[in-house]
Amino acid sequence: MIFLSLILACAAAAATGILFPPGAWYDGLRKPSFTPPRWVFPVAWTTLYLLIAWAGARLAVLPGAGLAMGLWAAQVALNTLWTPVFFGAHRTGAAMAVIALLWLVVTALVVQAFGLDIWTGVMLLPYLGWLTLASALNFSIWQNNR
């Protein structure tokens, strides 16, 4: 039941991609050479959201996981916010601030997860890696499309 609740929270975050698709605005931006092909994004995010929910479900049943679950909730809220700011409002600088905060929260979550359960920490590492790439993309787009 916990996993279902957390996957629904991740699905809400994912739904912002449907409500605010990249579209012509994104296609017209100057993007860095390391931008993945468009098909990679839904594949990556589907995998990441499953791992994020699974990691959250593992954390939720551990004693002393209150801070970790607070960070989990904060990351899903920030994750949900980024897409409307970037793709909806076209505010690449504001989106950079959101993703930087998201990166910090996820880093703290990973540290907390490793302290509670090593496998849960490992499950969150791909998310942190992807956010690092996404942050670099966001920064490059922000800088090259003023």
Rank of each mutant, 00 (worst) to 15 (best):
residue 1 M to F: 13
residue 3 F to Q: 01
residue 4 L to M: 10
residue 5 S to Q: 11
residue 10 C to Y: 03
residue 10 C to A: 14
residue 11 A to R: 02
residue 11 A to T: 11
residue 14 A to S: 14
residue 17 G to K: 07
residue 20 F to L: 03
residue 20 F to G: 00
residue 21 P to M: 12
residue 22 P to H: 12
residue 22 P to M: 12
residue 23 G to A: 15
residue 23 G to C: 00
residue 23 G to K: 10
residue 26 Y to M: 07
residue 28 G to Y: 11
residue 30 R to S: 11
residue 30 R to N: 13
residue 31 K to A: 05
residue 32 P to R: 08
residue 32 P to N: 11
residue 33 S to N: 04
residue 35 T to H: 09
residue 36 P to Q: 11
residue 37 P to C: 09
residue 37 P to F: 12
residue 37 P to S: 11
residue 39 W to I: 15
residue 40 V to A: 15
residue 41 F to P: 00
residue 41 F to E: 08
residue 46 T to V: 02
residue 46 T to F: 01
residue 48 L to C: 02
residue 48 L to W: 03
residue 48 L to G: 01
residue 48 L to Y: 04
residue 49 Y to K: 06
residue 51 L to Y: 08
residue 53 A to R: 10
residue 54 W to Y: 14
residue 56 G to S: 10
residue 57 A to S: 15
residue 57 A to F: 07
residue 58 R to V: 11
residue 60 A to V: 10
residue 62 L to Y: 03
residue 62 L to R: 13
residue 65 A to H: 04
residue 66 G to E: 14
residue 67 L to R: 15
residue 67 L to Y: 09
residue 69 M to P: 12
residue 71 L to G: 05
residue 74 A to L: 15
residue 76 V to Q: 04
residue 77 A to I: 14
residue 78 L to N: 05
residue 79 N to R: 08
residue 79 N to G: 10
residue 80 T to Q: 04
residue 81 L to M: 14
residue 83 T to S: 02
residue 83 T to F: 00
residue 84 P to I: 09
residue 84 P to T: 10
residue 87 F to S: 05
residue 90 H to C: 02
residue 90 H to P: 00
residue 94 A to T: 12
residue 95 A to V: 05
residue 96 M to I: 04
residue 96 M to F: 14
residue 97 A to N: 04
residue 99 I to G: 03
residue 99 I to L: 06
residue 99 I to Y: 03
residue 99 I to Q: 04
residue 102 L to G: 00
residue 103 W to L: 08
residue 108 A to Q: 06
residue 109 L to I: 07
residue 109 L to E: 12
residue 110 V to C: 13
residue 110 V to W: 09
residue 110 V to H: 02
residue 111 V to W: 13
residue 111 V to Y: 10
residue 112 Q to M: 08
residue 113 A to S: 11
residue 114 F to K: 00
residue 115 G to Y: 08
residue 117 D to G: 03
residue 118 I to C: 06
residue 118 I to K: 14
residue 119 W to I: 09
residue 122 V to Q: 06
residue 126 P to K: 14
residue 127 Y to S: 02
residue 128 L to G: 01
residue 129 G to P: 01
residue 130 W to G: 01
residue 132 T to D: 04
residue 133 L to R: 07
residue 133 L to H: 02
residue 134 A to D: 09
residue 134 A to P: 04
residue 138 N to M: 08
residue 140 S to G: 13
residue 142 W to V: 00
residue 142 W to D: 05
residue 144 N to G: 10
residue 145 N to R: 06
residue 146 R to H: 12
residue 146 R to W: 07
residue 146 R to A: 13
